[in-house]
Each structure stands twice: as C-alpha cells, then as structure tokens.
Design a protein around this nucleic acid. Structure first.
Lengths: 338, 338
DNA sequence: CTGAAAGCGCTTACAG
DNA sequence: CTGAAAGCGCTTACAG
C-alpha cells in the first residue's frame, strides 16, 4: 500500500522517521529528538526508537534535514585546476578531516578561469555549508562578496577579512637562496606562474628581495601555463636569460624545463641548477631528482577544512594561517661552471 | 519584516520562488513552471518571471527540490584509495562530464577497506542520485544489493547485472608479452596487487595465460600494498625469483621496485626489464622512463559518469563497457643478458 | 495558461 | 518527557 508514486526507477523507498514512529508508537517528532538530541527523550523510548531505526536500516535524509535547518552537511571544494598533482594531497587532507566530522565534500574545477570560478562558486554555495576556494583567481572583493553569503576559507592565498590558509614561502626560499649563493651562483631566473595568481606574485617578490639582499641578479621569465608544457616551452627564454640557476613557480614547470634541458643537451645541474616548488608526487622520480621547496598540501587541506568547519559553527576566528615551507635538497642543484 | 529566524551566522537569506511570485504577482507554482518547464507558461509571464529571478539573483535550492522529486542532482564517487595518482585522471574525467550535465560530484575514499566502503556507500547513497564505485573491494553480492537501491556503475571491475566500465587489459598485455618474448625473455615475474582486487586477479590470469602460450615461465610475487613502498619492499623477493623481466600490477609498485633496483645497483633494463600498468603522471619522468600498459583513466571516468547518468534516467543498458589498453614503450625494457 | 492544495522528510518552538 | 502543529522551498497532480 502507499505505492502511488513509485520513485521512477528501482529501489524500495528508504525508511523515514514516520516508519519508525509507527512501529514504536510514538510521534515522529519524538523520533527526531531521540535520534539527534540524546537525553531529550526517556532512555527506554530512545532505546526502542534506536532499535527500530537499526531494523529498518534508517538513514536520515540530509536533503530533508537541510530544509528546516539550513545545514546541508556538505562542504564545497573549488580548485583552479584539478590537473595539478598538488591538489591531490590537498583533497586527501581535506577529505580526511571532512570524514572525521561526518561532512561530505562536493568538489569542482574552475579551469583557471575567474569567470567560471565565480559562477561555480555561486552555484555551489547554495548546496553547501561552506566553501574552500583553492588558489582562487578572483579578486579580493569578489571573494569577500561570496564570503558575505556563506563561510569561505581561502587556500593558498590570503584575502583581507576572510579566513585563509597559505604557505609561508619565505623560510624555504631563504634556504634555497642561501644554498645557491653559497655554491657561487650570482645570476638567477624565476620561472613564473599565472599572472592572476596571488601566490605567483608572492614568490617572485620574495625571490627578488632575497636575491637582491645577497647581491645576486634575478630576472622573471613568463610561462604560458603552470604546467609541464609551460615549462618545456620556456626553455629558449631560460637559455637566453643566461642564468646559472632557476627557481620555478612550481614543480610542474620545473619538470617541464628539466625535460627540455635533457633533450637539448643542457646538463642539470652542471650547466644549470633547478629548484621547484611543492614537492609533488614524482619530484623525486626525475633524473636528476628535483630539489624543491615543500609545503604540505595535505596539511593545508586538513587545516582549511577544520577552519571552515569552525567558521560554520560561528567561530569568528577569521585569522590567516601560515604553514611553513622547507627546502628539500635533491640532485638538481650544484655549483655553477667556473 | 519576516526576519524572525535569522540563519545563524551571516548572509542574507537567498531569494525563493515566493519572492519572485510576490514581485511578479503570480502564484509560486507558476514561477516553478516558468523556470523549469519552458512553454508551460505564457511567454510574457515567463519573461517577467525570468527577469525578476535574475534581479534577485535567484538560485533554485537543490535540497528543496530534492525532497519532492527525489533527485538531488549529485553523483557520488567512491574510490578505494585516493592516494593513487591514477584516480586523478579518473576524477578529472568524471568531473568534466558531470559539469556538462550540471551534476555535482560528491566524493569519498574507502581506504582499501571493504567495511568502510560499504558503510560509506550507504551513507552516500541517500544523498546522491547514483554512485560510482571505483575499484571496489566489495563482493559482487554486496554491490548488487547497493545497486538495488539506486543506480550504480562499477569502475575497473565488472559485476554481474550491474553496469560497469573497465579496461580490457588483454591487448596491452599481448603487446608487452610479445615484445618481451621477441627480446629473448623466458622467465617472468608478476608483481601483484591487492588480493581483494578483481583487477589484480584479471591481470595475473592474463599474464599467466599469455606467458604459457609463449612458453615462458611466470611466477606471482606478492606485495604488501599497491604503492611505491609495496614495490620497494618486494625487491628481495623479485631478485630471489630470478626472472629477467617483471610485469607489475600498477606503475606505483613498478616505480617503487625501480627505485630499489637503483639503490641496490641492479641495472634496469640491462639486468631486469620492468613494465608497469596505468601510465600515471610521472611514469615518463623516472630514469629509466617506465614502459607501461596504458588505459585512459580519464575516459573511464567520463564514460562511467555518462553511463551512470543514463542509468538514472532509466536507461537500462546495464551493459559492461570495456576500454582498450595499449603498450607504451619507454626505456625500462631491453633484451636480457645472455 | 494559471491557481490552490498537498506533500516530500525533517526540525523545532509551543503546549501540556 | 512527549504530542500536535507549523514551516523549510520546491514540485506536481488537480481544477478551472
């Protein structure tokens, strides 16, 4: 009976609190309380209700709960380009903490497009309790607008007035530049990332200042994309710059450049020292193994989710969190040819 | 007015169809029709309603819609271990198609645990329209049970009666074994994956049959985990097997073994030929670059989502889809020492 | 073409 | 401690 509007396809309709109420002879509201506000209901009824729930394989319907409460129990994760392996550590870290808190993760890719990012964020926002914006290409004001609607945590970039988690690139870069300087390098090149990336600006400024402090010259070399291909294509420009060492925006472009060097007979590290950024999967696999500046993206992910969960609870600690970086010495750095 | 229960934190309440109805002076049901069933409403009212909606920045609330329709507009993606880079491609492919169809992707990791997989799948199922089970560790019957509740597509493994997408490993392996045989190899080893993995069984059986056909011997060597570490730890066992070539369950274990070989002074490919599986990011980065059998995981992801979307629409083509594999020749294979 | 009503499954003041 | 009611935002027969 009661089989009037069968749910399109297959599947017996899942049990509801009404089913439990009927079986145990209580009001549905009591079922709801028993299941969600332990103590608000007598121990014996709660017991009976729980048993009935287990019998029926009852699962509370998150959609139905979301309506009156406004809480969906899901978090949105919006990254600028899912193609970059660093995000996998991030996603993993985020997923871990989300699971610990019984939250689900919805995620999406904005393909390095600010416009797509904005529209996706808006679409996502209505379905989630909060949003993680990773390596956002939006302007501060746009992010602040979004943050006015629902909690947001910016990852890999600070935004005034919005909680954020980002690496502090300085310590790792200090180590890197000190090493290069000590080895005798004096002419550096910075292989840049996307212009719209806040983090790219940060790395360039830091590298620049650190180089100047140490009386080294440094030039910025553009790439078409922060990918292996972008690095490969920048080979000629790098050669033209006549630097003895290059710092790359990320491991991907570094690896791309490394491949091009090999194909062109440029010996890394003898002819050119190379330092990447991120320590992605595979950075230790290349020949020579890539030296890099590491920041734990897994930590960034878990910290960001924790922060977001806090913000959703009303924890207004809109602070900026910075995670340390460190230099990872491998085989792509050596003294320059005399 | 009407500001009684302000949504906990911040954020103005999003516009609803009631707001639009009030502004345009029509019934909410008409708003709903105008927005979702173009043509069911006069052109002029539809026009006015759309404008009002745009003005208010209206977004339909997916939770609210899910309740009467039973459709959430989201798909679940459950993988056995998010740590494996092959899944990046899969996730990417899945995300692309999902986005094209305005579906959102919720995803979760079962950490190679069948029990965790089952409970997560159940939890997920109530929140999604359909589920993608990737490299499931469940038994056929368990998957069939889940599939009775809501549409499921199994990825990287067939399940009787359940739609699936999986690679056909044969063509790629035939190429690989032919090459090895032609080069003079006669003693092979198969570096295994998880015992609970259907795909591991498939690869072993295929390798075995193909080897026997070609009068080559082959032994199976267990690994503790289908990871780089698992491959590294299997080094001694591989050496003890006295094979001249090893086929690995996946690139991860192959890469792990490759690293161990290097550290122990075993020359790949002169002392030992090595063939991986998957062609993950980084497989071409190692020294020597890893030869491997490739299947496009990106395709698997997009095909699987397309199939799932079809199943949700009631498209009962519960078929099994097999995607071809191919051998990718790189530098880790050579003739055995005489 | 459009309105009024009922219902999706849950939560939560409000009474008692 | 528990019931009855109202409401969350939408959809969809049912009338007209």
């Amino acid at each position: 009976m009661g089989d009037k509007r069968r749910p399109a396809a297959k599947g017996k309709t899942p049990a509801t609190i009404y089913d439990i109420a009927r079986i145990t002879g209580v009001n549905p509201s009591t079922v709801s309380r028993a299941l969600n506000q332990p103590g608000r209901v007598s121990a014996s009824t709660e017991q009976r209700i729980r048993e009935a729930a287990a019998d029926l394989g009852y699962r509370t319907n998150p959609m139905a709960r979301a309506l009156p409460t406004g809480k969906t129990g899901t978090l949105g994760l919006l990254v600028s380009d899912l193609t970059n392996p660093v995000y996998f550590d991030l996603v993993r870290g985020a997923e871990r903490i989300a699971r610990e808190h019984d939250a689900m993760l919805i995620f999406a890719d904005s393909q390095e497009s600010a416009e797509l990012e904005r529209s996706t964020a808006e679409r996502l926002q209505i379905a989630v309790d909060g949003l993680l914006l990773v390596a956002s290409r939006l302007e501060d004001a746009q992010i602040q607008d979004l943050a006015a609607a629902k909690p947001i945590v910016a990852v890999n970039r600070p935004v005034p007035g919005v909680p954020s988690v980002a690496p502090d690139v300085r310590p790792g870069m200090v180590e890197a530049l000190d090493l290069l300087h000590g080895l005798g390098h004096r002419r550096l090149a910075y292989l840049a990332g996307p212009e719209a990336s806040w983090m790219n600006g940060m790395k360039w400024v830091t590298a620049h200042d650190l180089a100047v402090d140490r009386s080294m010259s440094i030039v910025e070399i553009q790439t078409a994309a922060p990918t292996r291909e972008g690095g490969t294509d920048a080979f000629a420009a790098v050669m033209a710059a006549d630097a003895t060492a290059v710092l790359a925006y990320n491991d991907l472009v570094a690896l791309g450049l490394l491949g091009a060097c090999r194909r062109h007979g440029v010996d890394v590290p003898r002819d050119l020292s190379l330092i990447g950024f991120d320590d992605i999967f595979g950075a230790d696999l290349s020949a020579p193994a890539l030296s890099t500046v590491r920041c734990s993206w897994g930590d960034m992910g878990s910290r960001a989710v924790a922060k977001l969960l806090g913000a959703i609870e009303g924890d207004a600690s809109g602070a900026e969190l910075n995670l340390p970086t460190e230099f990872v010495a491998r085989d792509s750095v050596a003294a320059p040819r005399p």
